Amino acid sequence: MMTNLFSTFDPSTNIMNLSLNWLSTFLGFMLVPMSFWFIPSRYNIIWFNILITLHKEFKTLLGPLNHKGSTFIFISLFSYILFNNFLGLFPYIYTSSSHLAMTLSLALPLWLSFMVFGWINNTQHMFAHLVPQGTPPVLMPFMVCIETISNMIRPGTLAVRLAANMIAGHLLLTLLGNTGPMLSFSLTLFLILTQILLLTLEFAVSIIQSYVFAILSTLYSSEVI
């Protein structure tokens, strides 16, 4: 009984010949965020520099009337879309950012909140945006219609742009990959090289599309302040 009681403290205890006694110690190191270490890793330094650059750029776009901390929502949005796009590059992983159900659920509430905030707090400013400066009186009704329509389709264009760009690259990779078994050895090598180049392009597209989504959301929000 005493042996069984103290066997949990035995360093040689194993499960299926795998020594798992020290696993909890390493899990502790894994769970502690890297930002709590005195000397951050190179990856952390790179990521912090990216976030600081984005913060400065979004702050410039929002202008002097932006609220404190308003850039954090756009940085979080950029990071969320970026990680989802990157995960979609791995085989057999569902690419959520290539579906309108996902992209519309990001774009529509964001745009709607901007519109509600703008029309409640800055009604006169929102009306002024419907007629560009210097428009002749004859064209004013048409400009109001055009500006209203362009404003209404903004969440749709945001959502479709992200989804379409993610679908296009993945679809091309899949279609080219399906032709592999029917090709000769030399053409298969060429196909693999093409796939690697397309994957690199998709890597760049993942970054660009998340950046475009965040930048356009920032520009739309700056119009309602």
Rank of each mutant, 00 (worst) to 15 (best):
I153H: 10
A128M: 06
F185N: 06
A128Y: 02
F90H: 06
L172M: 13
E147D: 12
N84F: 08
K56W: 05
L100R: 00
V160C: 11
I167H: 05
V160G: 12
F90W: 03
A159K: 00
T95R: 09
T148K: 01
F117C: 08
S76D: 01
S113F: 06
A101C: 02
H55D: 15
S79N: 06
T188R: 15
Q124C: 07
M143I: 02
N85K: 03
C145I: 12
A164L: 10
P132H: 07
F127K: 08
M166F: 01
L187R: 03
Y80V: 06
Y94F: 15
T53K: 11
K68G: 15
F83S: 11
I75T: 01
S105G: 12
M182W: 13
N178D: 04
L104E: 14
A163H: 03
P64T: 13
F78S: 12
M143Q: 12
G88H: 09
A164D: 10
G118A: 10
F78N: 09
L62W: 05
S97R: 00
G134L: 11
T194A: 15
S150R: 10
S70L: 07
S113V: 07
L54G: 10
P91S: 10
W119L: 15
L162Y: 04
A159G: 09
T179G: 02
P141D: 07
N165K: 05
A163R: 00
M143T: 03
S113N: 02
Q124G: 14
G69N: 13
I149H: 01
K56N: 11
T123Y: 14
L106E: 07
T148G: 01
A164C: 06
P132C: 10
N66T: 11
L139H: 02
F58K: 06
T179D: 01
F72T: 14
F190L: 15
L189R: 05
G180M: 13
W111L: 01
L61T: 08
L187W: 07
L175C: 09
M102W: 06
V131H: 01
A168R: 02
A163E: 05
L82K: 00
P109G: 07
I167E: 02
S96Q: 07
I146Y: 10
H67Y: 10
S98G: 13
I81C: 14
M152H: 05
G177Y: 10
H99L: 15
L87W: 04
R161S: 15
P136I: 03
A101H: 00
I75E: 11
N165P: 05
P155G: 14
R154P: 01
F117T: 03
C145M: 12
M166H: 04
F114M: 12
G156K: 00
L191M: 07
S79Y: 01
N151L: 15
I75F: 00
G63W: 03
M115T: 04
V160Q: 11
L104C: 13
P136A: 12
L139D: 11
Y92W: 01
M152L: 15
I93H: 14
P181L: 02
T179L: 12
V131K: 04
L89T: 09
A159R: 00
M182H: 14
S96V: 15
L189W: 03
L191E: 03
